[in-house]
């Protein structure tokens, strides 16, 4: 099938049929914020950061879950999109305790980077100051729920790549929380294979290798896509 031609921020670009708008935007060299998306995992369209304006469509669409079509005219960086993205990042910072100064991921964190990217210089909303537990019952990894953004990348990595579905989300709304097995200490999970893919997938310092301190957790989420590729190619 012939390539699709579309216009992104005024530039004509071509994409293979069936491609997602997000990859096309990135291939065109345009930076667009994402959080719940991770190459190699299925998409859920939950973080709403990659929403774009598509001419002729009433609603904003998530680039990660929109298929390109011929003649599509897309705007990725309008004033209102910039304003919405900033608000969304503010909401995230207000939701839990994202204190970069004392975080293992500082300097390697997607949330921290997002704040810089969308120009979020302060948070207008009231900080919710939650008090979530830190689970370090697992011999190799820990999870600090105070730093979780509920992107569910760990849940999907565990389910789709490792295939054990140790992680899921419990509760709902603002009380949602990622859990292992029956909401039990991670170290007592009977399904976890200790493969560490959840830790690789985590965009923030929520899931971390034990023994690292401030700024020491490397960011290695791109390895998830490599693992998927490896599985496909049977390296």
């Amino acid at each position: 099938m012939a390539a699709k031609t579309l216009t992104i921020d005024g530039h004509l670009v071509s994409a293979r049929p069936g491609a997602m708008l997000l990859e096309t935007i990135r291939e065109a060299g345009i930076t667009i914020p994402t959080l719940c998306h991770l190459d190699g995992l299925s998409d859920v369209g939950a973080c709403r950061l990659c929403l774009v304006e598509i001419e002729g469509q009433r609603r904003l669409q998530p680039a990660c879950m929109t298929t390109v079509s011929e003649g599509m005219v897309v705007h990725t960086n309008t004033p209102r999109l910039r304003s919405y993205r900033r608000q969304i990042v503010e909401l995230l910072f207000a939701e839990r305790n994202h204190v970069c100064a004392v975080c293992v991921a500082s300097g390697n964190c997607e949330l921290q980077r997002l704040a810089a990217l969308v120009g979020m210089d302060h948070v207008r909303y009231e900080y919710m100051s939650v008090a979530y537990p830190v689970d370090i019952s697992h011999p190799r990894f820990g999870i600090d729920h105070n730093r979780c953004v509920l992107c569910t990348r760990c849940v999907r990595a565990c389910d789709e790549i490792e295939g054990v579905h140790t992680w899921d989300v419990s509760g709902r709304g603002i009380d949602s929380r990622v859990i292992t097995d029956m909401n039990q200490p991670w170290g007592t999970s009977t399904t976890c294979t200790s493969c560490g893919k959840c830790q690789l997938a985590c965009p923030t310092g929520a899931i971390f290798p034990r023994g690292v301190t401030v700024g020491e957790r490397p960011h290695a989420s791109e390895r998830i896509a490599l693992i998927v590729e490896a599985r496909k190619q049977r390296w």
């Binding site: 910072f93 204190v99 004392v102 100051s129 008090a131 105070n146």
Partner: peptide, 15 residues
């Protein structure tokens, strides 16, 4: 950061 976000000073809030 303390002036902008509360930062480390605000770590007592969850208590």
């Amino acid at each position: 950061d303390c002036a902008v976000t509360g930062n480390v000073t605000a770590l007592r809030n969850p208590l």
